[in-house]
Amino acid sequence: MKTTYSILYTPIKTIGQERLNLGMIMIDDYGNIQFDFAKEKLKASKKLFDDDGYKLLVSYLNAIETKLSKKDELIDSRSKFNTGYLDYLSNYSNNLLSFSKPVDIDIDLSDSNFNHLFSKYIFKRVEVEKLTPLKSRIDSLKLEVLPRVKERVNVNVDLDADTFDFVMFNMRIDMMGRNDMPVLNQFIDFETSNRTIQKQLTDYLSIVKPLELREKKPGKFFIVADEPSKKEIKQHLIWRHLMDSPLISEKIVEVAPTNEIGRIEDYLKEHDVKPFFE
């Protein structure tokens, strides 16, 4: 996947063309955006600016952060914050805050990749010891359920777009079987980042219609997921869009909460589902 980044900087010597890198913005092909600026570095550099200039610089950076966070909550990739707009901004300077020429890089937009580049070009924050995270409810349930159903479905199926004509890009399906129709299930954790949820949903739902066309019959598609807390605004917005979609209302896809996983296991038994690939 192509990701584009641009560095936000302020010139500190016009003649010597010295600059102070303060922030970074990254955009991927899906229109997802990540932005941060080094508040610690900016505060430590306060003496380089007069009072009005410093306040204006802080205001600019806070305004950008607010605008981009609202864009992310709305999941609106049509915002003018795209690679073309970044290119425009790189040619525009207000003598206080500038954008570097956008650079394309062949990596995914992830927290780890963003933090790596941010540490390299902007500011290396003090790292704290990382704790080993507990497995989420979805991950634990998946580990528990897959061994129980592997006689009736293929589990952890890797689908290669070059091999299967109903696949647009490589993906992994958690459960894949058939009786008189294809039967699939995917575990999706709505406690992860909104970008991860979007990718998992997009991957899975992209094969629904192509697989039905290939099999010349409707399929049975499940998603195991729990509604996220409404305090998690981005994740809950994706959940609401999913539940309001025709895929759910027309019963093309059925969402089962983790405490009702038995519904899927019962379906596999009652309909004598067999592995999709022998």
Rank of each mutant, 00 (worst) to 15 (best):
I15Y: 14
I33D: 01
L22A: 03
D28L: 03
R19W: 06
K47Y: 07
I27L: 15
F37G: 07
G23W: 04
I25C: 01
L48D: 03
K43N: 05
F37T: 06
I27F: 01
K41H: 13
N21W: 05
K47E: 11
G31P: 02
K13M: 09
I27V: 15
N21E: 14
K13Y: 07
I27K: 02
R19D: 08
K41D: 08
N32K: 07
E18M: 08
K41C: 04
K46A: 12
T14E: 09
N32L: 12
M24W: 02
I33F: 00
E18C: 11
G16A: 11
G23E: 06
T14I: 14
N21M: 06
D36G: 10
S45W: 04
R19H: 11
K39W: 15
Y30N: 06
I25Q: 00
R19M: 13
T14P: 15
M24Y: 10
K43Y: 10
E40Y: 13
D29P: 04
K39L: 10
F35D: 00
Q34R: 12
D28K: 05
K39V: 14
L48V: 12
I33S: 03
N32V: 07
Q17M: 13
I27P: 03
G31A: 05
F37K: 02
D36C: 08
N32W: 10
D28N: 12
Y30Q: 15
K41R: 11
I15G: 11
R19L: 08
K13W: 11
D29T: 14
N32R: 14
L42V: 04
G16C: 15
I27N: 01
K46Q: 11
F35Y: 06
G16P: 08
A38L: 02
D28P: 06
L42P: 09
D29M: 14
L48M: 08
Q34L: 15
R19N: 14
E40Q: 04
M24T: 02
G23H: 15
Q17R: 15
I27Y: 00
D28Q: 08
G31N: 05
L48W: 01
E40V: 11
L48T: 04
K39Y: 05
Y30T: 12
K46H: 14
D36K: 07
A44C: 12
I27R: 01
L20M: 10
K41I: 00
Q34P: 02
E18Q: 07
K43C: 11
L42K: 03
D36W: 08
E40A: 13
K47P: 05
E40P: 05
G16V: 09
K41P: 00
L20F: 07
A38F: 06
